[in-house]
């Protein structure tokens, strides 16, 4: 079953397709997250556990990303502070 609005590159092999709507995903964690968000009623216990752990992993990675974003913001802020101090 193909899913509207998606294409799988020829060299790629998808990690899996959603059992409920046929949406293909390149990695298992994206598939697991999709199932949990999109079809919460249909999941069995295993899928649910997988979703919860994928979500915890995602949360950790998001925390790292937030730190990086904060770093970038600080750099940007002080960069501009310096620029204004020198130029204006």
């Amino acid at each position: 079953m193909s899913y509207e609005g998606t294409t799988v590159p020829r060299r790629d092999s998808p990690a899996g397709e959603c059992d409920y709507c046929g949406h293909p995903f390149p990695t298992t964690d994206r598939l697991v997250l999709h199932k949990g968000l999109e079809h919460p009623q249909e999941l069995d216990a295993d899928e649910e556990d997988a979703f919860i752990s994928a979500r915890a992993d995602e949360e950790d990675e998001l925390r790292t990303l937030r730190l990086k974003a904060l770093g970038a913001l600080v750099l940007l802020y002080f960069g501009f502070l310096m620029l204004y101090a020198i130029v204006a």
Binding site: G5, C21, G22, H34, L37, E38
Partner: peptide, 14 residues
């Protein structure tokens, strides 16, 4: 197909 093709995550209302 239970979901609309244009959203992966429109499960809020449900």
């Amino acid at each position: 197909m239970p979901s609309s093709p244009d959203s992966d995550t429109n499960s809020g209302a449900r």
